[in-house]
Protein backbone atom coordinates (compact mmCIF):
# COMPACT_ATOMS: atom_id res chain seq x y z
CA UNK A 1 0.00 0.00 0.00
CA UNK A 2 3.00 2.30 0.09
CA UNK A 3 2.74 5.15 -2.39
CA UNK A 4 5.88 5.97 -4.29
CA UNK A 5 6.82 9.64 -4.46
CA UNK A 6 7.24 10.70 -8.10
CA UNK A 7 10.86 11.55 -8.75
CA UNK A 8 11.61 14.66 -10.76
CA UNK A 9 13.57 14.21 -13.96
CA UNK A 10 17.29 14.88 -13.96
CA UNK A 11 17.03 18.01 -16.17
CA UNK A 12 14.34 19.43 -13.85
CA UNK A 13 16.55 18.77 -10.82
CA UNK A 14 19.52 20.33 -12.58
CA UNK A 15 17.46 23.41 -13.37
CA UNK A 16 16.34 23.74 -9.74
CA UNK A 17 19.93 23.33 -8.54
CA UNK A 18 21.11 26.01 -10.96
CA UNK A 19 18.35 28.37 -9.81
CA UNK A 20 19.25 27.80 -6.15
CA UNK A 21 22.95 28.35 -6.86
CA UNK A 22 22.13 31.61 -8.61
CA UNK A 23 19.88 32.63 -5.72
CA UNK A 24 22.74 32.00 -3.29
CA UNK A 25 25.07 34.04 -5.49
CA UNK A 26 22.51 36.87 -5.71
CA UNK A 27 21.86 36.88 -1.95
CA UNK A 28 25.61 36.85 -1.22
CA UNK A 29 26.15 39.81 -3.53
CA UNK A 30 23.13 41.60 -1.99
CA UNK A 31 24.58 41.19 1.52
CA UNK A 32 28.09 42.08 0.30
CA UNK A 33 26.78 45.31 -1.24
CA UNK A 34 24.95 46.19 1.97
CA UNK A 35 28.23 45.77 3.87
CA UNK A 36 30.22 47.91 1.45
CA UNK A 37 30.98 51.45 2.51
CA UNK A 38 28.40 53.69 0.88
CA UNK A 39 29.50 54.83 -2.57
CA UNK A 40 27.16 57.79 -2.15
CA UNK A 41 23.60 58.20 -1.00
CA UNK A 42 21.06 56.10 -2.90
CA UNK A 43 23.74 54.36 -4.88
CA UNK A 44 24.90 50.75 -5.02
CA UNK A 45 26.77 49.09 -7.88
CA UNK A 46 24.00 46.53 -8.51
CA UNK A 47 26.27 43.47 -8.56
CA UNK A 48 23.39 41.23 -7.46
CA UNK A 49 21.73 41.97 -10.78
CA UNK A 50 24.42 39.86 -12.48
CA UNK A 51 22.73 36.75 -11.03
CA UNK A 52 19.37 37.83 -12.51
CA UNK A 53 21.06 38.26 -15.90
CA UNK A 54 22.61 34.80 -15.64
CA UNK A 55 19.22 33.32 -14.73
CA UNK A 56 17.68 35.06 -17.74
CA UNK A 57 20.12 33.39 -20.12
CA UNK A 58 20.49 30.01 -18.41
CA UNK A 59 16.95 29.38 -17.12
CA UNK A 60 14.57 31.76 -18.86
CA UNK A 61 12.47 34.83 -18.03
CA UNK A 62 10.18 33.45 -15.31
CA UNK A 63 13.09 31.97 -13.34
CA UNK A 64 14.90 35.32 -13.61
CA UNK A 65 11.86 37.23 -12.34
CA UNK A 66 11.43 34.84 -9.39
CA UNK A 67 15.12 35.15 -8.60
CA UNK A 68 14.90 38.97 -8.51
CA UNK A 69 12.05 38.82 -5.99
CA UNK A 70 13.49 36.09 -3.77
CA UNK A 71 16.92 37.72 -3.75
CA UNK A 72 15.44 40.86 -2.18
CA UNK A 73 13.34 38.89 0.33
CA UNK A 74 16.14 36.58 1.52
CA UNK A 75 18.83 39.30 1.34
CA UNK A 76 16.70 41.74 3.35
CA UNK A 77 15.98 39.03 5.92
CA UNK A 78 19.70 38.40 6.36
CA UNK A 79 20.69 42.07 6.71
CA UNK A 80 17.73 42.84 8.96
CA UNK A 81 15.74 45.19 6.75
CA UNK A 82 12.80 42.88 5.95
CA UNK A 83 9.50 44.85 5.73
CA UNK A 84 11.25 48.18 6.40
CA UNK A 85 11.17 51.09 3.91
CA UNK A 86 14.55 49.88 2.60
CA UNK A 87 12.99 46.50 1.76
CA UNK A 88 10.02 48.08 -0.04
CA UNK A 89 12.35 50.32 -2.07
CA UNK A 90 14.66 47.39 -2.91
CA UNK A 91 11.74 45.18 -3.90
CA UNK A 92 10.24 47.86 -6.15
CA UNK A 93 13.63 48.39 -7.80
CA UNK A 94 14.28 44.66 -8.21
CA UNK A 95 10.85 43.91 -9.69
CA UNK A 96 10.97 46.90 -12.05
CA UNK A 97 14.47 45.96 -13.20
CA UNK A 98 13.40 42.34 -13.80
CA UNK A 99 10.32 43.38 -15.83
CA UNK A 100 12.33 45.90 -17.90
CA UNK A 101 15.11 43.38 -18.55
CA UNK A 102 12.71 40.64 -19.59
CA UNK A 103 10.88 43.03 -21.93
CA UNK A 104 14.15 44.24 -23.46
CA UNK A 105 15.43 40.66 -23.88
CA UNK A 106 12.24 39.64 -25.69
CA UNK A 107 11.46 42.76 -27.68
CA UNK A 108 14.73 44.40 -28.76
CA UNK A 109 16.42 42.51 -31.59
CA UNK A 110 20.21 42.31 -31.36
CA UNK A 111 20.40 43.30 -27.71
CA UNK A 112 23.01 41.54 -25.56
CA UNK A 113 23.32 41.17 -21.80
CA UNK A 114 25.06 44.58 -21.72
CA UNK A 115 22.05 46.44 -23.11
CA UNK A 116 19.67 44.38 -20.98
CA UNK A 117 21.71 45.16 -17.86
CA UNK A 118 21.81 48.86 -18.74
CA UNK A 119 18.02 48.99 -19.10
CA UNK A 120 17.64 47.05 -15.85
CA UNK A 121 19.91 49.48 -13.97
CA UNK A 122 17.95 52.49 -15.25
CA UNK A 123 14.61 50.86 -14.39
CA UNK A 124 15.90 49.92 -10.92
CA UNK A 125 16.99 53.46 -10.08
CA UNK A 126 13.87 55.11 -11.53
CA UNK A 127 11.52 52.70 -9.72
CA UNK A 128 13.28 53.38 -6.43
CA UNK A 129 12.73 57.12 -6.83
CA UNK A 130 9.08 56.71 -7.83
CA UNK A 131 8.54 54.47 -4.77
CA UNK A 132 10.24 56.90 -2.38
CA UNK A 133 8.36 59.87 -3.84
CA UNK A 134 4.96 58.19 -3.82
CA UNK A 135 5.21 56.36 -0.48
CA UNK A 136 7.63 58.24 1.76
CA UNK A 137 8.72 61.75 0.81
CA UNK A 138 5.88 63.09 -1.40
CA UNK A 139 8.03 65.84 -2.90
CA UNK A 140 8.80 66.06 -6.59
CA UNK A 141 12.00 67.95 -5.77
CA UNK A 142 13.38 64.51 -4.96
CA UNK A 143 13.70 63.88 -8.71
CA UNK A 144 16.45 66.56 -8.81
CA UNK A 145 18.73 63.76 -7.58
CA UNK A 146 17.77 61.36 -10.32
CA UNK A 147 19.84 62.39 -13.42
CA UNK A 148 23.32 62.09 -11.85
CA UNK A 149 22.39 58.76 -10.30
CA UNK A 150 21.02 57.53 -13.63
CA UNK A 151 24.36 58.42 -15.21
CA UNK A 152 26.14 56.28 -12.62
CA UNK A 153 23.61 53.51 -13.28
CA UNK A 154 24.49 53.61 -16.97
CA UNK A 155 28.14 52.95 -16.10
CA UNK A 156 27.49 50.20 -13.56
CA UNK A 157 24.77 48.62 -15.73
CA UNK A 158 27.13 48.43 -18.69
CA UNK A 159 29.99 46.91 -16.64
CA UNK A 160 27.69 44.40 -14.88
CA UNK A 161 26.30 43.36 -18.27
CA UNK A 162 29.86 42.80 -19.55
CA UNK A 163 30.67 40.71 -16.48
CA UNK A 164 27.52 38.61 -16.95
CA UNK A 165 28.34 38.06 -20.64
CA UNK A 166 31.86 36.97 -19.67
CA UNK A 167 30.54 34.50 -17.05
CA UNK A 168 28.02 33.05 -19.53
CA UNK A 169 30.77 32.54 -22.13
CA UNK A 170 32.98 30.78 -19.56
CA UNK A 171 30.09 28.53 -18.53
CA UNK A 172 29.36 27.69 -22.17
CA UNK A 173 33.03 26.89 -22.80
CA UNK A 174 33.18 24.58 -19.78
CA UNK A 175 30.07 22.61 -20.96
Amino acid sequence: MSRSIPRPSLPALEQKATWLSLLLLAVSLHVFEAALPSLGPWFKPGLANIATLLALVLLGPSAAAMLAVWRVIVGSFLIGTLLTPTFIISLAGGVAAAIAMLAAWRLLPGITLIGVSLIGALAHMTAQFVTVESLFIHQQALYYLLPPLLLLSVVTGWINGGLAAYIVSQLEESD
Binding site: I111, T112, I114, W158, I159, G161
Partner: peptide, 11 residues
Protein backbone atom coordinates in the same frame (compact mmCIF):
# COMPACT_ATOMS: atom_id res chain seq x y z
CA UNK B 1 33.39 41.90 -23.22
CA UNK B 2 32.41 45.55 -22.85
CA UNK B 3 31.89 46.73 -26.43
CA UNK B 4 28.28 45.51 -26.72
CA UNK B 5 26.23 45.25 -29.91
CA UNK B 6 24.90 48.07 -32.06
CA UNK B 7 21.56 47.73 -30.28
CA UNK B 8 23.32 48.12 -26.91
CA UNK B 9 25.13 51.23 -28.11
CA UNK B 10 21.90 52.69 -29.47
CA UNK B 11 20.20 52.08 -26.12
Amino acid sequence: WLKGSWTDRTV
